[in-house]
Amino acid sequence: MTALTSPPREPTSPRRAAVRRGDRVFRGLTLAAGVFTLIVLAAIAIFLIVKALPALRADTKGFLTTREWLPDASPSVFGIAALAFGTLLSSALALVIAVPIAIGVALYTTDYAPRRIATVLGYVTDMLAAVPSVIYGLWGLYFLIPHLVPVQSFLARTFGWIPLFADPDNRTSVASRSIFAAAVVLAVMILPIISAISREVLAQVPTTSREAALALGATRWEMIRTAVLPPSRPGLISAVMLGLGRALGETIAVALVLAASFDVNWRVLTPGGNSIAANIATKFGESGNTGREALIASGLVLFAITLIVNLAARAVIYRSGAMERSAAV
């Protein structure tokens, strides 16, 4: 699932032509690891499809367009429209918040900070990644939401003319469990992943390139813009995509923070919104048979969304990689 760029391959020059036993064993082990990953992925896909089919057959309204979730009622009504919308909107918003900060942190540690500060900063950001997501959820629920009231009402008052920030019923005057609040929590959660990988990617840029740019009279910012960022782009995109993957699939933190409504709500500051993973977490315990299958069907959709996002990221990396190569020639 990860989309890291593979390091350039060394030209193969075996010291001895004869393949040793140890080589064969190791080759077998790595092959097994690779095959195992594929088998797991296929097994998950098959499980989801098989379990989801009965619910999809029992559904009386369009699964993709319905904005309700009452699978155990009769007639059974459920659909993923609102859930998929909320998942994508909250994740996209989280990226908007997290990516500039994460890449900023990474650039500061590789290109600006003194060595000692850079090391400490690296440790601290990595530690953010070690915090369990339920802790982020509790932090969001008990601390962030009440403290976000002034921010949300400020955004609503100042940028209310943008439909995204509109709040016609003045619902941001009290604690609002909004998509925005969820996106802030998600942003904090994906920040360490994006910044840690970005840091590694940026550090891969050869010092000689940096020195060459500086020697040509570039300022530090120009050096970063011309010599550091372009070759790092595929890696940075990979980092962002990994972060997006985590945001799309984040379950308990979102479940604790969001107000869980089933409407397609563009107003990110007002209470409401839901996500596929959060809905599975909240509904699973009390679901009947159809309910469980319906939740698995929604899981199938999330699986598909994640695959599509990863494939799209691959395509972007491939194309930008190809561009770099052609530019170099």
């Binding site: 009452l70 155990d72 009622a73 469990r177 969001l258 107000a259 869980a260 089933f262 977490a281 009390e286």
Partner: peptide, 15 residues
């Protein structure tokens, strides 16, 4: 109606 889940028209949900 009634049930373990309701199609709420408003208010805020929480887990």
């Amino acid at each position: 109606g009634s049930g373990k889940e309701i199609n709420w028209p408003g208010g805020q949900g929480a887990k």
